[in-house]
Amino acid sequence: MKNKVMKRKTRETLIAWSFMSVWVLGFLIFTMIPIFTSLYYSLSDVVLSGEGIIVTFTGFDNYAQVFSSAEGFNFLRSVSDFAIEILFKVPIITVFAIIIAVLLNQKIKARGFFRAIYFLPVIIASGPVISQLINQGAATIPQIEELGFINLINETFNEGLARPIANIFSELIVILWFSGVQILLFIAALQKIDKATYEAAMIDGAGVWESFWKITIPSLSSMVLVSVVFTIINLATFSENEAIQHIKNNMFALETGFGFSSAIAWLYFIVLAIILAVFFLIFKGFSKDRGRK
């Protein structure tokens, strides 16, 4: 009997791994080995020659070059711009997506029509198309510049902060094009809320405003984290992002090459990990706060 149970367990393990085998194999070949190779490249001088690639270990030379060369400086500046911008963009996108999701979830006529419009950004989200939208001037609110708003920002903040903040205002509408999937996520979460909860709250005398803060928002909170992570990754890997352009452009640049590119790719990942950690901590602190109340 015991033998049979054991056998069943081994069989299950075998079956499970055979289902996973394609992915595991792919992960080893196309992801894991490349990750370690990339780490090694970042610590090496990589030269492409007729016979192939010549990799010479040089320690932290590439990383030192990032902090000492003009190219490295450009990269660092675009990364810090990106980091500052994301601190503003993530809350804007999240709040906007929640508002739209709540509105779209109301009992309204032509809901299908409105949803069709608001999910357009899910499908029209490619770099080239978005930059066409920007080109066309449909991306800015003219009043912001006319009213001297940008000047005000430039005067108030020091240069390092003013540029990204001014960017955010001039791109306010483009930012909204990055909220398609997040709206979807929040609508899915809203539909999970039992309608009886609202009815019960109404009988107890809660108004719409109270129901919104006491029922809707708490039940969205787990989705907020999902949405925030998605937003950060999505913005970080968006093809028009300047920081990742540097990584690609340096691959074939004469002075830098694969080694330097790998090094800045890893630095970029470290910054990204820090940003994710910051948002995670903010989120954790926020939900703890709620718990105490």
């Binding site: 196309f30 490349p34 190779t37 990339s38 970080a236 990742i244 691959m251 790998s262 990942f269």
Partner: peptide, 17 residues
């Protein structure tokens, strides 16, 4: 982790591969 790791980190070795 593979979701959080941007493709930029391992695309160069993939390119070589």
């Amino acid at each position: 982790l593979t979701y959080l790791l941007p493709v930029q980190v391992y695309m160069i070795p993939r390119y070589v591969l």
